[in-house]
């Protein structure tokens, strides 16, 4: 794998390219789209593993950090969905440039799935891995975890404040919060993808709603339940690495 900075010199983004391993290279690049900052750390290892699995199947794979996250430029309070969507497009271009591929597929996890779906990219395959369908529900899930953490922390530093200025250790500026609250894949324009797979570990009604909604508006939309540890975090699991072997295999098989 080859780490690099890409994009503008004023705000370089960090990415890692995984070239195909062995014979049988494909003319397809796969872009991996991380979840939001709160869930990023626990999924880093799973993304590295997924990238390696896809590289072994002959794909060119690229994973990258959004602006204001990971090793990319920007402070943690500067991230916005609109910027991150632009980052997805920049990463796709970087992958095309590095690998000289004509086709791009994308795999997005949680908020990353929503970003990939709304990026406007023309994709061969789009895998929505336990996607954030409704931004309000997503924020509510994270806020619930935060409330639990506060409850057991004897000294919450901002206990007296009405609204914490942050969410699970990361700034949540109003502009970003507004963007996330306004996110709803049921109402967004359908992704431009030849095939769309919704892949989930937990059978929740909202995922079926998304399946029905996309199936009405796009061709080749499939739903896959892979029972396993859910990506949707609970409490301290945000600090524990996500492994998801069955899901990683299912995704790699889906693309391969």
């Amino acid at each position: 794998m080859t780490p690099s900075f890409f994009g503008s010199s004023e705000a370089p983004l960090f990415g890692v390219y995984h070239p195909p391993v062995g014979p049988g290279q494909r003319d397809v690049g796969v872009l991996l789209s991380y979840p939001g900052p709160q869930e990023y750390m626990r999924t880093h290892w799973a993304f590295r593993k997924l990238a390696a699995m896809l590289a072994k199947k002959g794909f060119h794979v690229f994973r990258f950090d959004y602006f204001g996250t990971g090793d990319s430029a920007g402070a943690s309070d500067e991230g916005r969905l609109s910027t991150w969507r632009a980052n997805v497009n920049a990463a796709a271009q970087e992958l095309r440039d590095i690998a000289a591929v004509n086709k791009i597929s994308a795999i997005g996890l949680r908020l990353g799935a929503a970003l990939a779906a709304t990026s406007g990219l023309s994709l061969t395959d789009l895998v929505l891995w336990e996607p954030v369908v409704d931004g309000r529900i997503y924020l509510s899930e994270l806020e619930t975890i935060q409330a639990r953490q506060l409850e057991r922390n004897l000294h919450p530093p901002w206990q007296a404040m009405e609204r914490p200025p942050e969410l699970l250790g990361f700034p949540l500026p109003v502009a970003l919060e507004d963007e996330v609250r306004g996110l709803n894949l049921l109402q967004e324009e359908a992704p431009k993808a030849a095939r769309i797979a919704i892949m989930v570990s937990e059978d929740r009604p909202i995922f079926h709603d998304l399946h029905r909604s996309l199936a009405r508006r796009a061709a080749n939309v499939t739903f896959h339940l892979v029972p396993e540890e859910s990506v949707t975090p609970r409490s301290d699991e945000l600090q524990a690495a996500l492994l998801s072997n069955s899901m990683l295999n299912a995704i790699a098989d889906r693309l391969g």
């Binding site: 090793d71 943690s76 990361f170």
Partner: peptide, 11 residues
């Protein structure tokens, strides 16, 4: 820090 990658807790 632990098994997490190099960016440190909460970056």
């Amino acid at each position: 820090v632990g098994l997490n990658h190099r960016i440190g807790p909460y970056r």
